[in-house]
């Protein structure tokens, strides 16, 4: 066998084994969670509040809390993120100041979530007086996901071919018409992917919300955005910290619910993408 052919084989082998290694680890994790958690997924698990007794405890409060926080986060962050990206790509002058902002956004995307939690505690909870509410949590989560959404949206807006824009401008369209009529629809699939990735990350985030008062004993569900709340990852964190084995199984159950949630989010994104890519 020639030397180059041998190298090719070796490279192929490594690429193959490392990619399957990560799949294997993932499968192991999923299997161990399913093994521990599947048996707790009974109807009362979804409709009960947390309890001192593992057999009675459920995820009603954190489930509804997560829904509140994620919905509000999406409502706040998507319009702001997409508009910011559009402004940067379509309107902002390309100068040093824009570059500076850009670098800062990229840096923010890599910031530890706990920093956002501390800042939100100071600004939203204390200074603005929103207390430890769904609103404070959602604002914090919005800050957390915004850089990711902006960067992803900018990428997909930039990837819209220049000749599509030219075609639209040459027909006497105003810039906003070009943006909303051609550029944005063409960029939606990519933007959606970014949004889903960002929201998925926020959905599994516990640390900043512990600071923002996501309680673990919540015997009620939020009725408004000013109510207190808890979310799934905080509940999981709490249950995992208990010494009793039974609570660990509850945590596994809650993790399964969280994973199903994420799958649903991603599936929704796939549907939206395919709708927008009807003409391809």
């Amino acid at each position: 066998m020639s030397r180059r052919k041998l190298r090719e084989k070796i490279f192929h082998f490594f690429a193959f084994s490392f990619s399957w290694l990560s799949v294997l680890v993932l499968l192991l994790l999923v299997w161990s969670i399913l093994r521990d958690g599947l048996h707790v997924l009974k109807p009362h698990f979804f409709t009960s509040f947390p309890s001192r007794f593992a057999a009675k405890a459920g995820i009603y409060a954190p489930l509804i809390g997560s829904l509140w926080v994620m919905t509000l986060t999406a409502i706040i962050s998507i319009p702001i993120g997409v508009s910011t990206a559009l402004y940067f790509e379509e309107y902002a002058p390309k100068n040093r100041f824009a570059d500076l902002l850009q670098i800062n956004i990229a840096t923010l995307a890599g910031m530890p979530a706990i920093i956002y939690g501390l800042m939100s505690l100071a600004v939203f909870v204390r200074y603005l007086g929103f207390e430890r509410s769904v609103l404070s949590a959602s604002l914090c989560m919005s800050l957390l996901v915004l850089p990711t959404i902006i960067i992803a949206a900018q990428g997909s807006i930039r990837a819209v071919p220049i000749n599509l824009r030219e075609a639209a401008f040459a027909l006497g369209a105003r810039r906003y018409q070009v943006v909303f009529g051609q550029v944005l629809p063409a960029a939606v699939p990519g933007i959606m992917t970014g949004i889903i990735l960002a929201l998925s990350r926020a959905m599994g985030e516990a640390a900043p919300l512990i600071l923002l008062g996501a309680l673990s004993y919540v015997a009620f569900v939020p009725k408004s955005i000013m109510d207190s709340y808890t979310v799934l990852p905080v509940q999981i964190f709490n249950w995992v910290g208990r010494p009793q084995e039974a609570f660990h199984d509850l945590a596994a159950g809650a993790i399964i619910v969280l994973i199903v949630f994420l799958f649903a989010l991603n599936f929704g994104a796939v549907i939206i993408r395919s709708r927008f890519q009807r003409y391809k």
């Binding site: 000749n163 599509l164 030219e166 003409y279």
Partner: peptide
């Protein structure tokens, strides 16, 4: 204007014709 590479919008044939007049 007609460009060097054909650049229809990624929409239906009809929508390609209608878009310009509509936005105007």
């Amino acid at each position: 204007m007609v460009f060097q590479r054909p650049n229809p919008f990624p929409k239906s044939v009809r929508a390609n014709i209608v878009w310009g007049p509509k936005v105007n």
